[in-house]
Write a protein that binds this DNA or RNA. Structure first.
Lengths: 189, 189
DNA sequence: TGCACTTGCCTAATACCTTTAGGCAAACAA
DNA sequence: TTGTTTGCCTAAAGGTATTAGGCAAGTGCA
């Protein structure tokens, strides 16, 4: 019988696609095996276990997101950069809901260390170079921006803003205005 | 044989406790049956299915959270109210991680309508009475506050801020300062 | 080209979890 | 006490996760 040509990378990739199509929690070793028209046990040569597969998808999503962020940020500064990075997260979550959900997976310390998590923090910090903040305030601001981006995208994707006026797009724009204003005028302790 | 006295409410309650102890995703019909020392099938007279049970836990958590919010808000206004409500979310997530995770469950429209979700939006809106915002800006601000509260608590609980200085408590205080300043000085479009 | 060896996918088996159908006995009503 | 309801049980089918061991498709070397 011809071989299917499974590799860890192909499995993770296909798992990510499946997540976007049917939801991250529907991604299962069995479903993935069906997609490759292969028996379930065969996957275990390439992937340690179900958790390992999901971690792989999460790491892939974090990398992709960091790559998009890096190119969005190139050549921009100030509010322009703020908007660009914010939109990267929001657009990615809309285009790849399953991957975005995967990126939210709680990673164990080793996986977290190997992830693109650090790049994300660095990108946010890079934005703040366009504003005038002291060092500790930069960290507070990085955390605030991370919270807003993640929180907004997450609430929006779970339908929180979909059934009321004004529409979500307008709120998003106004929130970015507000964050810009806040960073230009960060309050002293 | 003596009966175990199962009811939907007791099952949901026990499921919530179990979520706090071992994690929301470990809450399973089987595990719950074991906890009541009862056979699995017996639960299905009180709970439609696994998803129904989880929805019940989510609704319970949202109610508890809204109750805490309401009493925290009583008699407070302005920044005092802002801080009080924000701390309700953060403290609840720390005390009841499983319940908080449950509250993040994506509810189907019927469940969402029956949930305390509306109370949460109302509470945030009540805080804004202490600030001077036009009607549409209030909605934007409600969404911003919701995003920050949810985003911060969620990132903090997944360990995002735990391994770097300054500590999370300080950032939280500074973020509340910043939000207060922002609401007092909300930028025009 | 032929052989040995590696590696990939398979069969088989175990162990959970979920859900439905139908039965017996405890609690309750009269 | 006798019906009747209702609650928990047994039984069974189907899905997912994971491990152990087997056979054949590819690969390297003579």
């Amino acid at each position: 019988m011809a071989r299917a040509g499974l590799t860890t990378a192909r499995l993770v990739q296909a798992g990510a696609d499946m997540a976007d199509e049917v939801g991250f929690d529907q991604v299962t070793v069995s479903a993935l095996a069906r997609r490759f028209d292969v028996k379930v046990a065969s996957l275990y040569s390439h992937v340690k276990n179900s958790h390992d597969l999901k971690t792989g998808i999460a790491l892939l999503a974090l990398e992709e997101l960091a790559d998009r962020g890096a190119s969005a940020l190139a050549g921009r500064a100030g509010k322009d950069a703020l908007t660009a990075l914010a939109n990267v997260y929001r657009d990615y979550a809309r285009e790849h809901p399953g991957r975005y959900a995967a990126a939210q997976l709680r990673l164990d310390p080793e996986a977290a260390a190997a992830s693109a998590g650090g790049r994300h923090a660095q990108m946010t910090r890079a934005i703040l170079r366009g504003y005038d903040l002291t060092e500790p305030d930069q960290t507070h601001a990085v955390r605030l921006l991370g919270s807003v981006f993640h929180g907004y995208v997450s609430l929006e994707s779970s339908g929180g803003f979909s059934h009321s006026a004004p529409d979500s797009q307008e709120t998003w724009a106004r929130i970015l205005d507000a964050l810009d204003a806040l960073l230009r005028n960060w309050p002293a302790p």
